[in-house]
Simulated scan of single mutants.
Amino acid sequence: MDDTQSLTPADADALLALADGHHARTVRPLGSPEVAGHVVKSYAIEAPGRTVTDQDSQAALRIAADHLSSAHLRGSVGLSVLLMHAGGDGDYVLVHTWIEGYMSDLAVFTGPAGDISRLRPGRSGLAPCVWEAAVLAYERDAFSRHVLDGDGAFEERLSAWRGDLLEGEVR
């Protein structure tokens, strides 16, 4: 490697601007109801100054129900994680579903801040942001720990998974 070459082709200005604005966001569990044949662990993620209301969480559950109603066609095994993110630049609903073959299915819905009725499927290729990914990483570990590697009957594993909740700040 030539010592005069940059170590990375990354956009330093863009990355430093992201670093300057990076902050903690609050995560709150919202329960784990049964929706469209799935156990759904629900979370609120809140940017500073934003709150996920009961109305928002009910709307997110309706979006999840619509999406999950055909999840069996995508190989769903009946466990899902729902994120309602009151972001700094808009609102987001993510429906993450465990499917066959140790894989998962992800749907992202986006819309303007404070208008849950205008959420629509996100563009192709859209993936979780850093805060959403933190919650999904936690949930990946909880799924592996309790459901895949857990001991006991299925109901015990499911109960342990439902009770393993992330709460507080993520970065």
Rank of each mutant, 00 (worst) to 15 (best):
M1H: 09
D2Q: 00
D3F: 07
D3P: 11
D3Y: 07
T4F: 09
S6K: 08
P9N: 15
A10R: 15
D11N: 11
D11G: 02
A12P: 04
A12C: 09
A12W: 12
D13R: 12
A14Q: 11
A14Y: 13
L16R: 13
A17H: 13
L18R: 09
L18S: 09
L18P: 05
A19V: 12
G21D: 11
H22W: 14
H22L: 12
H23E: 14
H23L: 13
A24D: 15
A24L: 06
R25S: 05
R25G: 03
R25K: 06
T26K: 11
V27S: 08
V27W: 10
P29L: 05
P29V: 09
P29D: 15
S32T: 14
P33F: 07
P33K: 05
E34P: 07
E34V: 07
E34K: 08
V35H: 14
V35Y: 15
G37H: 07
H38P: 08
V39E: 14
V39P: 00
V39W: 10
K41R: 08
K41W: 02
Y43H: 04
Y43D: 04
I45G: 03
E46P: 00
E46H: 00
A47Q: 02
P48S: 04
P48H: 06
P48L: 01
P48E: 10
G49C: 01
R50N: 03
T51L: 03
T51V: 11
V52E: 01
T53C: 00
D54R: 05
D54Q: 07
Q55R: 15
Q55K: 15
D56I: 01
Q58D: 15
A59Y: 05
A59P: 02
A60W: 03
L61E: 15
L61F: 03
L61N: 09
R62V: 15
R62L: 14
I63C: 06
A64L: 11
A65Y: 06
D66N: 09
D66M: 05
D66Q: 12
H67Q: 15
S69R: 13
S70C: 00
S70H: 07
S70W: 05
S70Q: 10
S70P: 00
H72T: 15
L73G: 08
L73T: 10
S76F: 07
V77Q: 11
G78R: 04
G78E: 08
G78Y: 04
L79G: 09
S80K: 11
V81Y: 04
L82N: 04
L83D: 05
H85F: 06
A86W: 00
G87Q: 01
G88D: 12
D89F: 02
G90V: 02
G90W: 02
D91L: 01
Y92N: 02
Y92Q: 04
V93Q: 00
L94T: 01
L94E: 06
V95P: 00
T97G: 06
W98G: 03
I99L: 08
E100P: 01
E100F: 10
M103Q: 13
D105W: 11
D105M: 13
D105K: 04
L106G: 01
L106R: 01
A107M: 05
V108K: 08
F109C: 08
F109I: 06
T110K: 12
P112Q: 09
A113T: 08
A113I: 04
A113F: 05
G114K: 06
I116S: 15
I116T: 15
I116N: 07
S117K: 14
S117L: 06
R120M: 08
R120A: 12
P121T: 05
P121V: 06
G122F: 04
G122P: 03
R123C: 15
R123F: 12
